[in-house]
Design a protein around this nucleic acid. Structure first.
Lengths: 68, 68
DNA sequence: TACATTTGTACCCATAAGGGTAAAAATATG
DNA sequence: CATATTTTTACCCTTATGGGTACAAATGTA
C-alpha cells in the first residue's frame, strides 16, 4: 500500500525541520493537503503528491511486488 | 515524472492482452479513468492508480532521485 | 504544572475528477 | 481496399478533492 508514502513524507519533512505549513508553502500545495497526505489519505491527487515529493528529490514510481 | 506510470500500465495491460474496457472492469475503475491514466494525466487519484496497479501485482512507491 | 508550538479535525466553497455514454479517429485484420 | 476492433475525444452529471480558515487536540519544553 502506498500508505508508506504518508510516513515517508512525514519523515522527510522532519528531517528538513519543516512544519506542515512550511512544507505546504514550499511545495505549492495547500496545508490541508499536506495534512491529509501525512495521515495516509488514499484519494489524493498524484500531481500534488509529486509536487511535495519533488521537494525531497523524490518521485512516485511503480514498484513491483513479485510479478516478473 | 510519474508519466512513466502511464506507459507502464499500458504495457502491462497489453502483456495481459486486455483492452481498456476489460482492464477498467477488472480493476473496478471507470473506462475513462484508464484512458486518462494511460494518456499520462497527472491529476489522477492515487487510490485509483493503485487499484489498477494491483492487477499487475504492482504498487506505487516513492523513488529516490539522488538524495540519500 | 503552565505555556508555546505543531498537528488534527471541521467548516464552506470552487473546481475538476471520474463514471456513463456516444461518436469520431486510429489501429488491426481479412 | 473494406471491415472489425480498439482507442480517443466530447458531452452529460454527481461527488469530493483541495484551498482557505478557525478551533480543538496533541506534542514539546521550561
Amino acid at each position: 500500500m502506498s500508505a508508506k508514502i504518508a510516513s515517508f513524507i512525514k519523515e522527510k519533512r522532519k528531517q528538513l525541520k519543516l512544519t506542515q505549513p512550511e512544507l505546504a508553502e514550499r511545495a505549492g500545495v495547500g496545508l490541508r493537503f499536506v495534512r491529509e497526505l501525512e495521515q495516509g489519505k488514499q484519494s489524493v491527487r498524484l500531481d500534488k503528491v509529486n509536487q511535495v515529493l519533488a521537494l525531497f528529490g523524490s518521485e512516485l514510481g511503480v514498484i513491483q511486488k513479485s510479478e516478473s
